[in-house]
């Protein structure tokens, strides 16, 4: 059935195309605005362009690309930056003064003692 229909369509189209009479034009005029639509390929190109350019590109593509560069990638870069900042913020501890070092040394021992006490209690 579909084969028969489409073959029929092809035959009619062929006849219209070959015939030199004004018959096809008359049909076209009678159908009016419909012909217009068909002539513009059902406005598919325009709709396509509108959908892609206006909606998809601006509303989906651009945000996706932006998010990728700034949020997802930014997150990765932030890890690196955070390590740098943290490294910078603790750099003052290494003061070069031996008496400070001794103080840290003692703090370390006390810290360890607390840890041992904690382990011992539990």
């Amino acid at each position: 059935m579909p084969v028969a229909l489409s073959l029929g369509g092809i035959v009619i189209a062929f006849v219209f195309y070959k015939s030199t009479t004004a018959y096809p034009d008359r049909i076209a005029n009678r159908l009016g605005s419909f012909t217009h639509t068909v002539k513009n390929k059902f406005y598919i190109d325009e709709i396509y362009l509108f959908v892609t350019k206006k909606i998809v590109f601006n509303l989906v593509g651009r945000p996706a690309a932006w998010i990728d560069r700034n949020i997802v990638d930014g997150m990765m870069n932030t890890f690196g930056a955070a390590a740098q900042v943290f490294s910078f913020s603790i750099s003052g501890i290494q003061s070069g003064r031996v008496q400070n070092y001794a103080a840290y040394f003692l703090t370390g021992i006390i810290g360890l003692a607390l840890l041992f006490i904690y382990v011992w209690i539990h």
Binding site: R62, A65, D68
Partner: peptide, 10 residues
């Protein structure tokens, strides 16, 4: 999906 849309803008 996200990769495809992000590609469009490149």
């Amino acid at each position: 999906i996200y990769g495809a849309f992000a590609t469009m803008m490149q």
